Simulated assay, not measured.
Amino acid sequence: MKALVRADASVEIGMGHRVRCQALIHAFTQLGWQCQFVVDRRYQAFASPDDVFIATEAQFWRLAEQADLVILDHYGYAADAITQLYQHQANLLVLDDMNDRGEFPAKWLLNPLQQDYSKLIEYPLIGSQYALLRPAFQASHIDHSSPQRLLVTLGGTDPLMLTLPILNTLLASGFPTEYIQVLLGANAKNAAQVIAFCDDNRIAFEQGLADVTPLMKQAKMAISAAGGTLFELACLGVPTVFAQVAENQTRSLEQHVPLDWCCSVRFDTVPEAARQQRVARLVEEVNRRWLDLQWQQNARQTARRLVDGAGAERVARVISDFFETQ
């Protein structure tokens, strides 16, 4: 069986689509599938040499017709574009977050948030049990030691370059540098300046780690972007102050913040000149919650109940079972 995965990555798009699709590819591969990314040539710098590169949508349609399954994780596809793709390959799995693209047909629809979709979706896969995490999270066991670190991680690209102002504000607030752990994505903006700052202030940092679970397990709390990392931190029970850096993170925060294992400060809707005020608010929230041990304990328990790390395996099994019964 062959699956094509349509997802792009760039500084503007971020790395989250590709990362969660890689988790799904791993699960399908374990069941004997052949999987391959299909990527727009404009984003070749963030792709793998093994990917298939396309310049037009017609090229993708021809590839889709030859596959058994197409997995679409791409905000560039509105309802009409998804409908066109479905006409070329009805065995279509659409990954979604916001449920804001209108009605479209698909065999399967995956959203780790509770959302209602039209009857054009044959098999909705809805809820946090379908959150797509890398295999390391499923294999991770809860660390019963007492974590001491504040993990600062603003996504694969840190599109708004928030890491450095957050670190500056943390230090100005008197937060102990020995407790800070910075995690930079391989393609993080402003990485050289962040690394220099960390060196100057003896702050621990890592960049481009293939497995982030050891750092997350050491985290008493985290400051994080609110993309796919939200589900990773929930799985490992890390209370978090999220920096919202993109519109597509709105629904996940609307559903998770009321559960009180996390809180959030929004950055994507404010001009650059006003971001420092939001950074100060975020750091104030971190300092307040850093000493609230009862909240942290409750938050850890709540978060771990939400995500078990086996979502990709569940999705791959559901779809494989469908093909086995045809």
Score class of each variant (00 low, 15 high):
residue 239 P to I: 00
residue 161 M to I: 03
residue 157 T to G: 09
residue 8 D to W: 07
residue 142 I to V: 14
residue 295 W to A: 13
residue 60 F to C: 13
residue 249 Q to E: 01
residue 263 C to P: 00
residue 280 A to N: 15
residue 309 G to A: 13
residue 27 A to W: 03
residue 185 G to Q: 06
residue 314 R to T: 08
residue 323 F to E: 08
residue 152 V to T: 02
residue 310 A to L: 11
residue 90 A to H: 13
residue 117 Y to M: 01
residue 182 V to Y: 03
residue 293 L to V: 13
residue 265 V to W: 08
residue 282 L to H: 05
residue 98 M to Y: 04
residue 131 A to Q: 01
residue 184 L to F: 11
residue 281 R to M: 15
residue 89 Q to S: 02
residue 123 Y to L: 13
residue 60 F to W: 13
residue 160 L to Q: 10
residue 318 V to Q: 12
residue 203 I to T: 06
residue 164 L to Y: 11
residue 159 P to D: 00
residue 72 L to K: 09
residue 273 A to L: 14
residue 135 P to M: 03
residue 30 Q to A: 12
residue 60 F to V: 10
residue 35 C to G: 05
residue 207 Q to E: 08
residue 102 G to K: 05
residue 115 Q to R: 14
residue 208 G to N: 04
residue 52 V to R: 14
residue 120 L to E: 14
residue 155 G to M: 08
residue 64 A to F: 06
residue 60 F to G: 11
residue 44 Q to H: 12
residue 314 R to W: 11
residue 15 M to N: 03
residue 21 C to G: 04
residue 177 T to G: 05
residue 31 L to S: 09
residue 12 E to R: 13
residue 79 A to G: 09
residue 13 I to D: 04
residue 39 V to Y: 01
residue 133 L to E: 10
residue 123 Y to F: 14
residue 117 Y to W: 05
residue 17 H to E: 04
residue 16 G to H: 07
residue 202 R to I: 10
residue 310 A to G: 15
residue 171 L to Q: 11
residue 276 Q to K: 04
residue 136 A to I: 03
residue 268 D to S: 06
residue 258 P to R: 00
residue 258 P to I: 03
residue 24 L to G: 05
residue 230 L to G: 04
residue 278 R to D: 08
residue 27 A to R: 06
residue 189 K to A: 14
residue 136 A to L: 10
residue 2 K to S: 09
residue 185 G to W: 01
residue 67 A to W: 07
residue 305 R to E: 15
residue 140 S to E: 10
residue 126 I to Y: 00
residue 179 Y to W: 13
residue 202 R to S: 09
residue 96 D to S: 08
residue 124 P to R: 06
residue 143 D to P: 06
residue 136 A to D: 12
residue 221 M to E: 00
residue 8 D to L: 04
residue 138 Q to V: 11
residue 80 D to P: 02
residue 69 L to V: 03
residue 29 T to E: 15
residue 91 N to H: 03
residue 280 A to H: 12
residue 15 M to C: 10
residue 233 L to E: 01
residue 271 P to E: 12
residue 61 W to R: 10
residue 7 A to E: 03
residue 183 L to T: 02
